[in-house]
Amino acid sequence: MTQPDNVTVGAAVKTVALVSSGRHPVSGRAGRAREDARAVEMGLSLSGGTLTLLHAGDADDAALPEYLGMYHGLSAGAGPGRLDLLPMAPDGDALPALAARLRQSDARLVLTGQRAECGEGSGMLPYLLAETLGWSIATGIAAIEQCDGDHVTVLQALPQGQRRRLEVALPCLLAVDGVAPAPRQSAFGPARRGITDSVATAAPAADPGWAAWQWQPARARPKRLKVVKSTNARDRFKAAAAKSAASGGQVLTDLAPDEAADRLLAYLRSEKVLAPVSDAEGADQ
């Protein structure tokens, strides 16, 4: 929304984007994950072609070329996209491998989505990584405002379109929110040219937690019914059948526009929609 332009760090701060395999909400086909793609977008506009992607999982995942296909529209001379792949079985634990890889590389800024779209999708991974590496972490990132060698200034998304400015010390992990600027199109040519480096890791252990869990297809969540606890049938019936519209609002008729404006402003102030009394208002009265 308010992505500042011209914020770039180039290669000064080594940036890595963690990407996962997404699932299309309708077809369930593998592709870019919505939040991870935004993290890559943020990384590309910050670091250009020096951004490296990191993925732990299946080398043949259809999502990986799609991320590499985002390496376009960068400064002249930017090479093809690079992705470090840590081969791993679907039930493997990505954490040790990722942590080891990040420790090895000189990455200082890691961008990722808040939650994966397949697998456990708990959104714990960035936190566990940050804890393991001893890095700072911030979540719900909507934009990067500034990045120097020590700190990165970001905007965090709050409910109702509001933003909060945070200063996060490097090295850090930033979990990017779905309201961040939309990712650029994934193009076939750059995807084809992208380079995937398979990084050999110690055979990742199977995730310890998973064995005890039962996996089920997602069930529709029960819709909450409005239960009226009342001892008498008439009230229960009335509550069930009543039109919710008739909430007994206040109706003001026959007001001059000025009076109406006063009443309206008074209401807005009492509900704290507007700041209590502005200076101009004070001068007016």
């Binding site: 299309h24 309708v26 077809s27 296909g69 376009h72 199109q185 193009a187 750059p190």
Partner: peptide, 28 residues
């Protein structure tokens, strides 16, 4: 489209849908 990835916005969305759902509307 293929090298620069600069298809107009709605066109790019239609292509993404075609890739993911085999129809441009992104429907099941």
């Amino acid at each position: 489209t293929l090298e620069r990835g600069e298809t107009p916005e709605k066109g790019a969305a239609a292509i993404d849908n075609l890739i993911a759902t085999d129809n441009p509307g992104g429907l099941d």
